[in-house]
């Protein structure tokens, strides 16, 4: 499996990781190796096999429609929510201006 630099840059862009041309060039064979290795899976016959959905038989539990029933997953905690923000102003998170 060979991965070219352009592909590495496209993936890095999708993943929002800034990457230099040198890093992309260095990473290309490395990713190629790993992808080549995992492509070993192609040889497994999976006809009629369902992809795994739950590792231990279990189905989704649903929660009651109650506001702030558990304070750990409820709202009304703006100070906590903003406590670690690199930039927070007037009760908002702030980010560089987005032009839509």
């Amino acid at each position: 499996m060979s991965v070219d630099t352009a592909t590495v840059k496209r993936i890095a862009s999708l993943a929002r990781i800034a990457i230099t041309d040198e890093d992309a060039a260095r990473m290309a064979p490395e990713l190629g190796n790993i992808l080549g290795w995992i492509e070993m899976l192609e040889e497994v016959d999976t006809t009629g096999i369902e992809p795994m959905t739950a590792v231990i038989p279990n189905t989704l539990r649903l929660r009651d429609d109650v506001v702030n029933a558990d304070p750990l997953t409820g709202g009304g905690i703006r100070e906590q929510v903003l406590a670690n923000a690199p930039v927070a102003e007037h009760g908002f998170f702030a980010v560089p201006k987005v032009i839509e």
Partner: peptide, 28 residues
Amino acid sequence: SNAKLFSGAATAFGAEPNTQVSLVDAAM
């Protein structure tokens, strides 16, 4: 609904910014 799809924060319209946000909704 009273609460959000995946958390217990309220859904009422027009609240002060970020006051109806749980740790879950802020993706902590």
